[in-house]
């Protein structure tokens, strides 16, 4: 029996070269004996080959024929849809993409295949600064839908959603999908690794991303300023112990330092709009941070501590 790679190559060549859709009978005749004779076995082999080609990224077009072959399916492959267009990447740009892969997705088979298609090599550069970029099975599908401006449906926290994707963001090691949740009628952020596995369906509905949408603002960088406007920002005076003074001042900035004490502790002014977030920030220092004022913030910290201590 002929090698399956040979049959697949011949099949692909035939479907690429043909000027008209070919029926399975014609395909089998052209490939002269490479498919089984029996109708069902032949159909099964052909379907397996179609699936194998699709796996590699080759879509076989098909349509129901008319005329003297009415009712039969005809097959062909569109060369322009199969081949990668020339993206015009020069050597330096290819090299930079290789280094980017080495720094963020080392050892990635998918990245290596992609570089080969672009004409680059799989050389690994030495990397001195790197970031671990996680993957999730549904990310490529979501990006595809985003690029095509299509809505998607998936299950999240046990609830089925229909979402218009507006952007995909990686922050602090997690991928987020931001979009309009039609089921809720509001903008929502979803953690991509918690979307039900392999269950993203791309819908036909077209999506319009609002022109003023900026994904950078979708996840506020500083939770203490959530809901902030010019009237709601207050300030708390917090004492930070010697051991954590350095990192607190680095986070807040030197202009927030109200006093530096001889024991190495500092007093800082912390602007906030969201009381919960401020309390959470202060508690993150454990016994190395104490709220001095205002009283309502201090009381809230004590109330929260009592609830845990009891």
């Amino acid at each position: 029996m002929a090698d399956r790679v040979e049959r697949l190559t011949n099949l692909l060549a035939l479907l690429l070269e043909t000027r008209e859709p070919l029926t399975l009978d014609v395909i089998a005749a052209e490939l002269g004996g490479q498919y089984p004779d029996g109708h069902d076995a032949r159909r099964a082999s052909f379907e397996r080959d179609k699936a194998a080609l699709r796996d590699i990224g080759i879509e076989i077009s098909s349509e129901t024929l008319t005329g003297d072959r009415a009712g039969q399916m005809g097959y062909w492959v569109v060369r322009n849809e199969m081949e990668i267009p020339d993206l015009g990447l020069d050597e330096e740009e290819l090299r930079a993409l290789q280094l980017a892969l080495a720094a963020t997705r080392p050892g990635s088979e998918t990245g290596r295949e992609a570089m080969w298609k672009l004409g680059g090599g799989s050389a690994d550069g030495q990397v001195f600064v790197a970031m671990s970029v996680p993957t999730a099975e549904v990310l490529p599908v979501l990006r595809g839908a985003l690029g095509d401006r299509r809505a998607v449906s998936f299950s999240y926290a046990g609830v089925d959603r229909v979402v218009e994707p507006w952007g995909i963001l990686l922050r602090d090691g997690f991928w987020y999908l931001v979009g309009h949740d039609r089921s809720r009628g509001d903008r929502r952020t979803f953690r991509v690794d918690r979307i039900g596995e392999g269950r993203v369906t791309v819908l036909d509905d077209a999506v319009v991303v609002p022109s003023d949408f900026d994904i950078r603002s979708a996840l506020p960088a500083d939770p203490m300023m959530l809901g902030a406007d010019q009237h709601s920002v207050r300030s708390a005076r917090v004492s930070i112990g010697r051991q954590r003074a350095f990192s607190a001042v680095r986070e807040l900035g030197h202009d927030r330092v109200l006093a530096r004490n001889e024991d190495g502790s500092v007093e800082v002014a912390v602007p906030f709009a969201n009381l919960d977030a401020l309390v959470s920030w202060v508690l993150g220092f454990l016994e190395h941070a104490v709220v001095l004022e205002p009283d309502d913030v201090r009381d809230e910290v004590v109330r929260r501590l009592r609830a845990v201590a009891s």
């Binding site: 070269e17 980017a100 892969l101 998918t110 672009l118 595809g144």
Partner: peptide, 29 residues
């Protein structure tokens, strides 16, 4: 003849390159 150009990037490959590139653009330097 016949196979003059590589295949299109799959969705997985496209995402891999974009994600790696955009992440690397955030690195110092």
């Amino acid at each position: 003849r016949l196979f003059l150009r590589p295949l299109r990037l799959t969705e997985e490959e496209a995402f891999e390159l974009l994600a790696a590139g955009r992440a690397a653009m955030q690195l110092p330097g």
